[in-house]
């Protein structure tokens, strides 16, 4: 049996390439072109080329810098917690115990819930009048009166981070668990016989084994977290007092609320560049290890 010629593969993949180019490539090129213009949402006036002024504006705009900081704080926080929590949960459900299969099946539920539904659910949980969290904390004696979690500038971002972690840690757990399944039990037995304790077995055998999978989860989560929009927009719309306004929400407001498509596109290009830098950084680390 011989393999089909390479040109046949190219022909088969062509429709996908054309569609991807149309729905991803063209909008990306168009955004890049818009970022050098003063285009508005209505497109009523002739569009003028403004060079790099939209990019200069971006780096001198305190609102955009503040929104980028919020995106980074959010991304670092959720990714760190999700990686640690996800790995721990994967290790736990990898151990044999009664009901393990049911727990593994339940583990996928938070990740399977659409972000919009998750955000609305957490808004209800955080509700300052009848929310479950306030009720629970009051009954446990941890707080005296109900708290406005999403209306308080110091607590709103933390509350959103918690809601996002709850949804996404299970993705990390599932990826880590899949990797743990392929870990040789003979290797672990040998380590036990050699006298390695649980921490040594984790550090020298388990962790190196699941790290490649965790790296995939890491890069996926970083990309998602840096460009976060939906969960914040639904829970707080960037408030209170812009304390949860992420970079993506800022881009949306600049382009659509303020009708400045040109500078909105420039801010979006900066956001995309930031994500690309993070991915390249990750790829470089990966290549070095190889």
């Amino acid at each position: 049996m011989t393999n089909p010629p390479v040109r046949h593969y190219s022909l088969l993949i062509a429709p996908m390439v054309i569609i991807m180019g149309a729905v991803i490539g063209w909008p990306l090129i168009r955004t890049l072109m818009l970022s050098f213009t003063d285009a508005t949402m209505m497109g009523l006036n002739p569009i003028s080329f403004v060079g790099l002024s939209n990019f200069q504006k971006a780096f001198s705009d305190s609102g955009f810098i503040s929104a980028l900081k919020i995106s980074l704080i959010f991304a670092v926080s959720v990714v760190t917690i999700e990686m640690m929590l996800g790995t721990t949960v994967a290790l736990l459900v990898n151990e044999p115990f009664k009901g393990r299969n049911i727990l593994r099946a339940l583990l996928i539920l938070p990740w399977a819930i659409p972000t919009v539904v998750n955000a609305i659910m957490w808004r209800l949980i955080y509700n300052p009048e009848y929310g479950a969290l306030n009720s629970l904390l009051t009954q446990m004696g941890l707080i005296d009166s109900y708290i406005s979690w999403l209306g308080n500038p110091d607590k709103a971002l933390v509350a959103i981070i918690f809601a996002d972690v709850w949804k996404n840690f299970s993705l990390v757990a599932l990826i880590a668990l899949a990797s743990l399944q392929s870990l040789s039990s003979a290797q672990m037995e040998a380590a036990k016989i050699d006298g390695a304790n649980a921490i040594q077995r984790f550090g020298y055998i388990t962790l190196p084994h699941i790290i490649p999978s965790l790296q995939v989860a890491l890069v996926l989560r970083i990309i998602e977290a840096v460009k976060v929009f939906d969960i914040i927009y639904i829970m707080t719309k960037g408030g209170p007092a812009n304390k949860t306004r992420s970079g993506s929400i800022f881009v949306y407001q600049e382009a659509f609320t303020n009708s400045r498509m040109g500078s909105g596109a420039a801010f979006a290009v900066i956001m995309v560049s930031l994500i690309v830098i993070l991915i390249l950084f990750y790829m470089r680390i990966l290549m070095k290890k190889k």
Binding site: P128, E129, Y146, S148, L150, G151, N152, P240
Partner: peptide
Amino acid sequence: NPNSAEYLEEDVRRVFSSGD
């Protein structure tokens, strides 16, 4: 009500309609 900073129209309607 200190939760006012989080409330939109539908929220205040519910609070008022609950007698709070």
